[in-house]
Design a protein around this nucleic acid. Sequence first.
RNA 1: GGGCGCGUAGUUCAGUUGGCUAGAACGCACGGAUCACACCCGUGAGGUCACAGGUUCGAGUCCUGUCGCGCCCACCA
Length: 887
Amino acid sequence: MSTAPTEIPKAYDPKLVEEKWYADWLAKGHFTANAASTKPAYSIVQPPPNVTGVLTMGHVLNNSIQDILARRKRMQGYEVLWLPGTDHAGIATQTVVEKALRKQGVMKHRDDLGREKFLENVWEWKEKHGGIINQQLKKLGCSCDWTRERFTMDEAYSRCVLQVFVDLYQKGLIYRGKRMVNWCPVSRTALSDEEVIMRTVAGSLWHIRYPVLDAKGQPHPKDFMVVATTRPETMLGDEAVAVNPSDARYQKLIGKKLLLPLKNKQIPVIADEAVDPKFGTGCVKVTPAHDVADYEMALRHNLPFTVVIGPDGKMTEEAGEPFTGLDRMEAREAVVKELTEDGLLLKTEPYEHNVGYSERTDVPIEPYLSEQWFLKYPQVPHSTETVENGEIKFYPERWTKTYTHWLRGIRDWCISRQLWWGHQIPVWYRGDEIYCGLEAPKGEGWQQDPDVLDTWFSSWLWPFATMGWSLDVARDRPEKSDVLKKFYPTTDLVTGPDIIFFWVARMIMAGYEYMGEKPFGNVYFTGIIRDTIGRKMSKSLGNSPDPLDLIAKYGADGLRFGLMLIAPQGQDILFDEKRCEVGRNFMNKLWNAARFIQMQKANRGSAGASPSQHNAHDLKVQFEMNQAIAAVSQALDEYKFNEAAKELYDFVWGDFCDWYIEASKVSPNIEVLDEVLGNILRLLHPFAPFITEELWAGTGGAGTIQLVPWPTPREIEGMTDKVVSQVNDLYDFVTAGRQLRSDQRIDPKAKVAFIIKAVSNEEFLRSEIAFLKRLLNAEDVKIDHNYEPPPGKPTVVIASEIGGPVSSATSITMDVGDLVVNIDTERQRLAKQLADTEKQLAATDAKLANENFVSKAAPVAVQRERDKQQQLREQREKIQTLLRALQ
RNA sequence: GGGCGCGUAGUUCAGUUGGCUAGAACGCACGGAUCACACCCGUGAGGUCACAGGUUCGAGUCCUGUCGCGCCCACCA
């Protein structure tokens, strides 16, 4: 502590320190993990944000938490790897770039450019806009190992993706098949089930008559079957009408033919168990090519598949005139119109139902029959068990249920996408031949599958493909780098619960399949950031603040701390910019506390040694510091970041600033001030890296605070329970005295006197007169165990905690000298206090009068109640006496 | 239809295995340029713990039910 104190500015200005320190940390390589280190490993892989994304509040939350974990572990002596990176985000990026290119008039559809040219544009876009988010994370203070930054389309990473594909293909887990898939007509690609979000929409249920044909194939004028549908446009592709085989109403009709309206086509009436006779009319139109349930029925009954809606969402030629070429929604109206004109529409009723929407483009999904690649998930039972038995722990735990429920009902994953941006499927065709391998097969005429893989098919390998993993497909033996050996399995994963299926579950399966080990030990699920009225933050709503603006206004530390303070484990966060003010104010408070200490040192110079004896305030603050260290450590161990933040806030602002620094103005102990501040800086560093480093350096700390050991509670010499309760009582007198001043509207500048009636700790109080005088702004403070407050002098009766006999109604009396006391105010105050006391006493009396309580409750509880009763009685008596004197 | 979570001060949240007068922060009211800090200091007001039963000597806390809000899963046309 030899550095000369420098002038510290009055208000903390984050701009002056944040950039400076971040550059310093990078230059010194503090974030770079060393695989050869002998320290224990701690690792965490960052959920890779979309490469073209910009920082959102969600990222701020997520990455602040990861940074807190990483920084604390560094202080605890771990070799930390926090691996950052970005995701190519196939469909998202492609959609964005397509939109931009259309806007620029470069193309109408990507086919205009062709695959190669289009991809050039995407890469260009990626170079230009990619990685912005990482610059933003640096502003936030994130201590990622940027030397190991990865991108899911890096050469090495891509190789891993293809190796895994080939391997799973060889294992027979990947297969190709013509299936009904979720089709997005805007992106013109298949989607996985997880990319479809169900939405309740107010639609209609149209009841349509299908004429029954007689033996000669002629429609009966009055004989109809009535089907109910929410999608009349699909009737153009109907191949049957189905009824339940046990439905008595339609027994006779099974096997007969109907005339499909608008198409004048004969379709059969079939019987199938899938039909619920109680719903609607009990007759279902069957559209094999455009409905999942119908598709399955068609397979059972050998029906043909007529495709009437094309991949672009428009009606095909099969739909027939005048519908061909219409958009599916236009076709719906046109069909309804024609049916109405033909008198075949029986009725239309409003109907609420669920419709699947594309997560990305927000249009209704079309069930679409096409050739796609599918994956039978590996390691499903094992992945379920390990989360269930806690080998992989979820925080909050309840997400395990969601996870296992999904795994138990898991279905094959459609991994092919009809996009260009992504990893092209490593399969080649030549006639009937098919080849799957890392490179194109030798020989002429091979055509590679044009599809790419689902983005998540690359990100599910993230925990190891980023660390130098490689699979020798021929020998089926993974190669492990030193990094992998040191840092896999990773320790913690921090992510949102919205990607528990997309990402977390799949990483677990991939980890077991390819590493033979879990990918991470703990998964912390953050809440979702919402606005003050609970809406999700979104660009379109305009309710999501730009984190960079917030950093500029409140400082990165202020933003981080403010956010952590309101982020309870597992609950959504209602974010209000005001929260950042709390963080910023707290940083400023800390700044000024440090400034105070600096000034103390300057005042005393090197000559003024600290008192060697610790006084009661020193002991008390050290006691509270121990509590804080323990509480913060435990909260962080349990991933309760808001509790840790709250604990720090209360200790710093309350115990340290409000009481200890105030006491220090009477008799400072620089050593203790330094020690407590030092510990505060260490505890706070994971939350607020910049200010703590700045103050650490500014107060003469050695090296970087990042590598200073995490504090632990220590034995305090001279510390007893009695000291703590004595000091608590002392503080109670201060509060009570201030109450009197405030009640009686005594000008803060007016010096008044106080007389304290002590019971058993007179000597201690006498030693604290200077302290009392200062905090009460008093001219004089007297301690007198015989003092009886005279009538009219404002007095607060205090039930003392200080040991000794339970005869302890102490008091503090204010003597205002010549000033006038408002007797009414005083009477009111006493009356209120008396009422409170009596209320409590009544409750206590009732309890003790209850024989059941006395005999059944724990003896400690009973004794406590008795002590309380005694105290309250004395207190009541004192107050009554005072009050009587005022009548 | 199934599953999960949440209802505590104006607001956002704490509230351990049931047991001192249900706490905090922000906001609000009043007072204050006191020599760390007005991004501050001091004092205060504000709650039938969603509702109804039950268990218990004792319930914000445990159990059952009801209502309200949110999320996830599910192919009833």
